[in-house]
Amino acid sequence: MSKPAYKYLRPEDIRKLENFEFAPRALVEGYLAGAHRSRQRGSSIEFHEYRQYTPGDDKAFIDWRVYARTDRYYLRTHNLETNLEGHIFLDSSASMGFGNNPTKLEYASFFAAALAYLILANNDRVSLQIFDDKIRHYAPPGSTSLHLQHLMHLLETNQPGNQTSVAEALRRAYPLLKRKGTLVVISDFFDEPAAIFHALSPYLHRGFRIHLFHILAPGEIDLEQRGLAAFVDMETRGRVIAHTGGIRQAYREAMEAHQRGLRQLAARKGIHYTLARTDTSYFNLFDQFAQ
Protein backbone atom coordinates (compact mmCIF):
# COMPACT_ATOMS: atom_id res chain seq x y z
CA MET A 1 0.00 0.00 0.00
CA SER A 2 1.38 3.41 -0.89
CA LYS A 3 1.85 5.88 1.91
CA PRO A 4 0.67 9.30 0.70
CA ALA A 5 0.72 12.25 3.15
CA TYR A 6 -2.66 12.92 4.71
CA LYS A 7 -3.57 15.40 7.34
CA TYR A 8 -4.88 12.78 9.69
CA LEU A 9 -2.57 10.00 8.66
CA ARG A 10 0.96 11.15 8.94
CA PRO A 11 3.90 9.01 7.82
CA GLU A 12 5.18 8.67 11.36
CA ASP A 13 1.74 7.44 12.45
CA ILE A 14 1.71 4.92 9.64
CA ARG A 15 5.10 3.57 10.76
CA LYS A 16 3.67 3.06 14.21
CA LEU A 17 0.52 1.43 12.89
CA GLU A 18 2.49 -1.16 10.99
CA ASN A 19 3.23 -2.75 14.31
CA PHE A 20 -0.45 -2.96 15.16
CA GLU A 21 -2.88 -5.65 14.15
CA PHE A 22 -6.56 -5.00 14.21
CA ALA A 23 -7.74 -8.15 15.98
CA PRO A 24 -11.29 -7.96 17.07
CA ARG A 25 -12.28 -10.56 19.55
CA ALA A 26 -15.21 -11.76 17.46
CA LEU A 27 -14.96 -13.31 14.06
CA VAL A 28 -17.36 -11.84 11.67
CA GLU A 29 -18.85 -13.14 8.52
CA GLY A 30 -17.42 -12.01 5.20
CA TYR A 31 -17.80 -12.76 1.54
CA LEU A 32 -14.14 -12.72 0.73
CA ALA A 33 -11.51 -15.02 2.06
CA GLY A 34 -9.67 -13.13 4.70
CA ALA A 35 -7.41 -13.40 7.67
CA HIS A 36 -10.13 -13.92 10.16
CA ARG A 37 -11.48 -17.38 10.98
CA SER A 38 -15.16 -17.82 10.98
CA ARG A 39 -17.14 -20.18 13.18
CA GLN A 40 -18.98 -21.20 10.09
CA ARG A 41 -17.62 -24.22 8.44
CA GLY A 42 -17.04 -23.86 4.80
CA SER A 43 -14.74 -24.37 1.89
CA SER A 44 -11.28 -23.31 2.52
CA ILE A 45 -7.81 -24.76 2.51
CA GLU A 46 -7.46 -24.93 6.34
CA PHE A 47 -8.60 -28.40 7.69
CA HIS A 48 -10.65 -28.35 10.81
CA GLU A 49 -11.79 -31.94 11.74
CA TYR A 50 -13.55 -35.04 10.59
CA ARG A 51 -17.04 -35.81 11.78
CA GLN A 52 -19.56 -38.47 10.98
CA TYR A 53 -22.12 -37.75 8.38
CA THR A 54 -25.57 -36.95 9.58
CA PRO A 55 -28.51 -36.69 7.31
CA GLY A 56 -28.84 -33.24 5.91
CA ASP A 57 -25.12 -32.59 5.63
CA ASP A 58 -23.76 -31.42 2.37
CA LYS A 59 -22.62 -34.58 0.59
CA ALA A 60 -19.97 -32.56 -1.16
CA PHE A 61 -17.92 -32.50 2.09
CA ILE A 62 -17.84 -36.36 2.41
CA ASP A 63 -14.26 -37.63 2.33
CA TRP A 64 -14.47 -40.53 -0.02
CA ARG A 65 -10.98 -41.75 0.73
CA VAL A 66 -11.95 -42.33 4.36
CA TYR A 67 -15.12 -44.11 3.18
CA ALA A 68 -12.96 -46.42 0.99
CA ARG A 69 -10.81 -47.39 3.95
CA THR A 70 -13.49 -47.51 6.67
CA ASP A 71 -16.73 -47.94 4.75
CA ARG A 72 -18.15 -45.11 6.86
CA TYR A 73 -19.23 -41.62 5.80
CA TYR A 74 -17.09 -38.88 7.30
CA LEU A 75 -17.32 -35.33 6.51
CA ARG A 76 -14.09 -33.33 6.11
CA THR A 77 -14.66 -29.86 7.64
CA HIS A 78 -12.54 -26.74 7.13
CA ASN A 79 -12.45 -23.38 8.94
CA LEU A 80 -14.00 -20.79 6.79
CA GLU A 81 -11.74 -17.66 6.47
CA THR A 82 -13.75 -14.49 6.01
CA ASN A 83 -12.94 -10.67 5.88
CA LEU A 84 -13.70 -8.08 8.65
CA GLU A 85 -16.08 -5.26 7.86
CA GLY A 86 -15.56 -2.29 10.10
CA HIS A 87 -18.01 0.61 10.28
CA ILE A 88 -16.71 3.86 11.70
CA PHE A 89 -19.27 6.35 12.96
CA LEU A 90 -17.68 9.75 13.49
CA ASP A 91 -19.58 12.46 15.37
CA SER A 92 -19.06 15.79 13.63
CA SER A 93 -21.43 17.97 15.58
CA ALA A 94 -20.53 21.50 16.65
CA SER A 95 -19.57 20.37 20.14
CA MET A 96 -16.75 18.32 18.64
CA GLY A 97 -15.08 21.56 17.71
CA PHE A 98 -14.28 22.21 21.37
CA GLY A 99 -10.77 22.02 22.66
CA ASN A 100 -7.42 23.35 21.70
CA ASN A 101 -4.67 21.64 19.82
CA PRO A 102 -6.25 19.30 19.01
CA THR A 103 -9.98 19.81 19.01
CA LYS A 104 -12.10 16.83 19.80
CA LEU A 105 -12.98 16.44 16.11
CA GLU A 106 -9.33 16.51 15.09
CA TYR A 107 -8.52 13.94 17.75
CA ALA A 108 -11.41 11.75 16.61
CA SER A 109 -10.39 12.18 12.97
CA PHE A 110 -6.83 11.07 13.74
CA PHE A 111 -8.21 8.03 15.49
CA ALA A 112 -10.69 7.24 12.70
CA ALA A 113 -8.02 7.61 10.02
CA ALA A 114 -5.63 5.31 11.87
CA LEU A 115 -8.37 2.78 12.47
CA ALA A 116 -9.39 2.82 8.81
CA TYR A 117 -5.79 2.41 7.75
CA LEU A 118 -5.33 -0.51 10.12
CA ILE A 119 -8.46 -2.28 8.85
CA LEU A 120 -7.51 -1.77 5.25
CA ALA A 121 -3.96 -2.90 5.95
CA ASN A 122 -5.44 -6.31 6.94
CA ASN A 123 -7.32 -6.48 3.66
CA ASP A 124 -10.56 -5.85 5.47
CA ARG A 125 -13.32 -3.53 4.48
CA VAL A 126 -14.17 -0.34 6.24
CA SER A 127 -16.98 2.19 5.94
CA LEU A 128 -17.17 5.71 7.33
CA GLN A 129 -20.23 7.68 8.36
CA ILE A 130 -19.88 11.26 9.44
CA PHE A 131 -22.90 12.53 11.29
CA ASP A 132 -24.23 15.22 13.54
CA ASP A 133 -27.99 15.09 13.84
CA LYS A 134 -28.12 13.29 10.52
CA ILE A 135 -25.75 11.43 8.20
CA ARG A 136 -23.64 14.07 6.55
CA HIS A 137 -21.25 11.82 4.67
CA TYR A 138 -21.31 8.12 4.02
CA ALA A 139 -18.52 6.09 2.48
CA PRO A 140 -19.64 2.51 1.84
CA PRO A 141 -17.33 -0.33 2.85
CA GLY A 142 -14.27 -0.75 0.73
CA SER A 143 -10.80 -2.16 1.00
CA THR A 144 -8.74 -0.47 -1.67
CA SER A 145 -6.16 2.22 -1.38
CA LEU A 146 -8.42 4.43 -3.43
CA HIS A 147 -11.07 3.89 -0.79
CA LEU A 148 -8.60 4.97 1.90
CA GLN A 149 -7.83 8.05 -0.10
CA HIS A 150 -11.54 8.81 -0.30
CA LEU A 151 -11.92 8.35 3.44
CA MET A 152 -8.99 10.67 4.15
CA HIS A 153 -10.49 13.26 1.87
CA LEU A 154 -13.79 13.07 3.73
CA LEU A 155 -12.06 13.48 7.06
CA GLU A 156 -9.93 16.38 5.92
CA THR A 157 -12.80 18.32 4.41
CA ASN A 158 -15.02 17.69 7.38
CA GLN A 159 -15.97 20.59 9.69
CA PRO A 160 -17.99 20.67 12.92
CA GLY A 161 -21.64 20.98 12.05
CA ASN A 162 -24.94 21.11 13.89
CA GLN A 163 -26.31 19.65 17.08
CA THR A 164 -25.47 16.15 18.20
CA SER A 165 -28.00 13.36 17.87
CA VAL A 166 -26.15 10.09 18.05
CA ALA A 167 -29.35 8.08 18.37
CA GLU A 168 -30.92 9.65 15.30
CA ALA A 169 -27.78 9.12 13.25
CA LEU A 170 -27.57 5.46 14.28
CA ARG A 171 -31.21 4.90 13.34
CA ARG A 172 -30.67 6.43 9.93
CA ALA A 173 -27.46 4.47 9.29
CA TYR A 174 -28.94 1.12 10.14
CA PRO A 175 -30.42 0.36 6.68
CA LEU A 176 -27.13 1.28 5.04
CA LEU A 177 -25.13 -1.53 6.66
CA LYS A 178 -25.69 -4.72 4.71
CA ARG A 179 -23.35 -6.99 6.64
CA LYS A 180 -22.67 -7.29 10.25
CA GLY A 181 -19.24 -6.31 11.47
CA THR A 182 -17.58 -4.11 13.99
CA LEU A 183 -19.25 -0.81 14.72
CA VAL A 184 -16.99 1.90 16.11
CA VAL A 185 -18.84 5.01 17.31
CA ILE A 186 -16.60 7.99 18.04
CA SER A 187 -18.50 10.81 19.71
CA ASP A 188 -18.69 13.07 22.76
CA PHE A 189 -22.12 11.55 23.44
CA PHE A 190 -23.83 14.76 24.49
CA ASP A 191 -27.09 12.92 24.10
CA GLU A 192 -29.40 10.94 26.29
CA PRO A 193 -27.67 7.60 27.10
CA ALA A 194 -30.95 5.72 27.00
CA ALA A 195 -31.72 6.98 23.49
CA ILE A 196 -28.23 6.10 22.28
CA PHE A 197 -28.43 2.54 23.51
CA HIS A 198 -31.94 2.19 22.27
CA ALA A 199 -30.67 3.10 18.80
CA LEU A 200 -27.84 0.55 19.14
CA SER A 201 -30.19 -2.32 19.96
CA PRO A 202 -30.90 -3.29 16.29
CA TYR A 203 -27.18 -3.51 15.64
CA LEU A 204 -26.71 -5.78 18.59
CA HIS A 205 -29.51 -8.00 17.38
CA ARG A 206 -27.78 -8.36 14.05
CA GLY A 207 -24.59 -9.41 15.79
CA PHE A 208 -22.52 -6.28 15.45
CA ARG A 209 -19.58 -5.83 17.78
CA ILE A 210 -19.89 -2.29 19.05
CA HIS A 211 -17.16 -0.03 20.44
CA LEU A 212 -18.05 3.34 21.86
CA PHE A 213 -15.24 5.88 22.12
CA HIS A 214 -16.24 8.79 24.32
CA ILE A 215 -14.08 11.74 23.25
CA LEU A 216 -13.72 14.47 25.88
CA ALA A 217 -11.36 17.41 26.22
CA PRO A 218 -9.74 17.96 29.65
CA GLY A 219 -11.67 21.23 29.94
CA GLU A 220 -14.92 19.31 29.71
CA ILE A 221 -14.01 16.82 32.38
CA ASP A 222 -12.81 19.48 34.80
CA LEU A 223 -13.95 23.06 34.18
CA GLU A 224 -11.21 25.63 33.83
CA GLN A 225 -11.17 28.41 36.44
CA ARG A 226 -12.56 31.34 34.55
CA GLY A 227 -14.43 33.18 37.31
CA LEU A 228 -17.74 34.55 36.27
CA ALA A 229 -18.30 33.66 32.63
CA ALA A 230 -21.04 33.40 30.07
CA PHE A 231 -20.94 29.83 28.78
CA VAL A 232 -22.03 29.85 25.14
CA ASP A 233 -23.20 26.49 23.89
CA MET A 234 -21.37 25.67 20.64
CA GLU A 235 -24.36 23.78 19.31
CA THR A 236 -27.39 25.75 20.48
CA ARG A 237 -25.72 29.18 21.02
CA GLY A 238 -27.50 29.30 24.34
CA ARG A 239 -25.88 31.33 27.17
CA VAL A 240 -25.55 30.35 30.76
CA ILE A 241 -23.88 32.77 33.19
CA ALA A 242 -22.16 31.03 36.02
CA HIS A 243 -19.14 31.32 38.23
CA THR A 244 -16.83 28.42 37.49
CA GLY A 245 -15.67 28.44 41.08
CA GLY A 246 -19.21 27.89 42.19
CA ILE A 247 -20.20 25.08 39.82
CA ARG A 248 -16.93 23.33 39.18
CA GLN A 249 -17.38 20.58 41.70
CA ALA A 250 -21.00 19.96 40.83
CA TYR A 251 -20.18 19.92 37.13
CA ARG A 252 -17.40 17.39 37.65
CA GLU A 253 -19.80 15.19 39.54
CA ALA A 254 -22.44 15.51 36.81
CA MET A 255 -19.95 14.58 34.11
CA GLU A 256 -18.75 11.62 36.09
CA ALA A 257 -22.34 10.50 36.54
CA HIS A 258 -22.90 10.80 32.79
CA GLN A 259 -19.80 8.72 32.04
CA ARG A 260 -20.78 6.21 34.69
CA GLY A 261 -24.27 5.89 33.14
CA LEU A 262 -22.82 5.28 29.68
CA ARG A 263 -20.34 2.75 31.03
CA GLN A 264 -23.03 0.84 32.97
CA LEU A 265 -25.47 0.72 30.07
CA ALA A 266 -22.68 -0.40 27.72
CA ALA A 267 -21.58 -3.12 30.08
CA ARG A 268 -25.14 -4.33 30.44
CA LYS A 269 -25.47 -4.71 26.66
CA GLY A 270 -22.01 -6.10 26.02
CA ILE A 271 -20.76 -2.96 24.36
CA HIS A 272 -17.23 -1.73 24.80
CA TYR A 273 -17.05 1.74 26.21
CA THR A 274 -13.84 3.75 26.34
CA LEU A 275 -13.27 7.27 27.60
CA ALA A 276 -10.80 9.04 25.39
CA ARG A 277 -9.17 12.24 26.66
CA THR A 278 -7.79 14.44 23.95
CA ASP A 279 -4.65 15.05 26.01
CA THR A 280 -3.69 11.35 25.69
CA SER A 281 -2.40 9.51 22.64
CA TYR A 282 -5.09 7.89 20.48
CA PHE A 283 -2.81 4.92 19.94
CA ASN A 284 -3.78 3.82 23.43
CA LEU A 285 -7.31 3.31 22.17
CA PHE A 286 -6.27 0.40 19.98
CA ASP A 287 -5.64 -1.57 23.14
CA GLN A 288 -9.39 -1.86 23.43
CA PHE A 289 -9.48 -3.99 20.31
CA ALA A 290 -6.84 -6.33 21.66
CA GLN A 291 -8.99 -7.39 24.57
Binding site: G99, F190, A229, A230
Partner: peptide, 22 residues
Protein backbone atom coordinates in the same frame (compact mmCIF):
# COMPACT_ATOMS: atom_id res chain seq x y z
CA UNK B 1 -23.26 39.83 35.59
CA UNK B 2 -24.48 41.85 32.66
CA UNK B 3 -21.38 41.47 30.51
CA UNK B 4 -19.23 38.64 31.75
CA UNK B 5 -16.57 37.35 29.37
CA UNK B 6 -17.94 34.81 26.95
CA UNK B 7 -16.62 31.27 26.94
CA UNK B 8 -17.52 28.99 24.02
CA UNK B 9 -18.24 25.65 25.54
CA UNK B 10 -19.07 22.33 23.91
CA UNK B 11 -22.40 21.81 25.59
CA UNK B 12 -24.22 23.71 28.30
CA UNK B 13 -26.40 20.73 29.11
CA UNK B 14 -24.59 19.84 32.28
CA UNK B 15 -23.75 23.42 33.24
CA UNK B 16 -27.36 24.43 32.95
CA UNK B 17 -28.39 21.48 35.06
CA UNK B 18 -25.77 22.25 37.69
CA UNK B 19 -26.60 25.94 37.78
CA UNK B 20 -30.28 25.15 38.15
CA UNK B 21 -29.58 22.86 41.06
CA UNK B 22 -27.16 25.23 42.85
Amino acid sequence: RARPPEYRFSSNTFIRRVVRET
